[in-house]
């Protein structure tokens, strides 16, 4: 009963709701920007990683490998910390950019792996058939391989986006006002003086965002499936 009345108190207090909206805005901003950056980075890294072995590609390929190894091998919280306190330790540097880069760079490594796996899942014979007809590697990739790979990649990237959104909750670590920070503020001593209710409420907001996203991904998947009438 106490729990319920506190939830009502939270939703009916203007300053608490202000906090939540403010946090929601930042969580969404970072998530969306980082997802875009991650996609761009992921595509580039995947393409470089899968390019033919040649003298000129040696260094870029090595860099991509190192990048993926480091990002996947270290905790996100530490990556964020290093971005904020080492790399972008610049006076007045907007934290939103720091966080976007930290999460985008992190997401990019996973997206790259997802794309790579998706492309590898397409039978090599498809590429050979395209090339044997005289199509260039790029055309074969664009018209034959990628359309088939996308069906495998979209669900994996969807999962990555969901993970990304939830992972942004650690930006409060560098003092940023996201949903989790909003919960901490509402729960702090001078406000509700208990984290339990605001944390539960904020969890519902994350759930709602992820649910909407899942729904969107399902729609896209359905469309892609409908496309090949199988």
């Amino acid at each position: 009963m106490d729990f319920l009345s506190k939830i009502i108190e939270l939703f009916s207090t203007e300053k608490y709701m202000d906090s939540i909206w403010e946090g929601l805005k930042l969580t969404l901003t970072i998530s969306i920007l980082a997802a875009l950056l991650g996609l761009v980075l992921g595509v580039i890294v995947a393409l470089v990683g899968m390019a033919k072995d040649s003298w000129a590609m040696k260094l870029p390929k090595l860099l991509c490998k190192i990048y993926i190894t480091i990002i996947r091998g270290t905790p996100m919280a530490l990556q964020l910390f290093i971005m904020a306190y080492v790399i972008f330790a610049i006076r007045g540097f907007p934290l939103v950019i720091t966080a976007t880069i930290a999460f985008g760079v992190n997401s990019g490594a996973y997206v790259a792996e997802n794309i790579r796996a998706g492309i590898l899942s397409v039978d090599i014979g498809q590429t050979e058939a395209g090339r044997a007809l005289g199509l260039t590697g790029a055309t074969t990739m664009a018209k034959i391989v990628i359309p088939q790979a996308i069906k495998n990649v979209i669900p994996a990237i969807g999962n990555e986006l969901i993970a990304l959104i939830k992972e942004t909750s650690i930006v409060s670590m560098i003092g940023m006002y996201d949903l989790t920070m909003a919960a901490k503020i509402i729960g702090s001593g001078n406000n509700m003086a208990s984290y339990i209710v605001p944390m539960a409420v904020v969890a519902l907001f994350y759930l709602a965002i992820v649910y909407l996203l899942t729904f969107g991904i399902k729609l896209i998947e359905k469309r892609l499936r409908a496309g090949d009438k199988r």
């Binding site: 203007e14 300053k15 202000d18 906090s19 503020i185 702090s188 001593g189 001078n190």
Partner: peptide, 14 residues
């Protein structure tokens, strides 16, 4: 600052 230390510093809304 660390704005979880009322009354010295705390968030009032945003």
């Amino acid at each position: 600052t660390n704005a979880f230390f009322a009354p010295f510093e705390y968030y009032e809304g945003t």
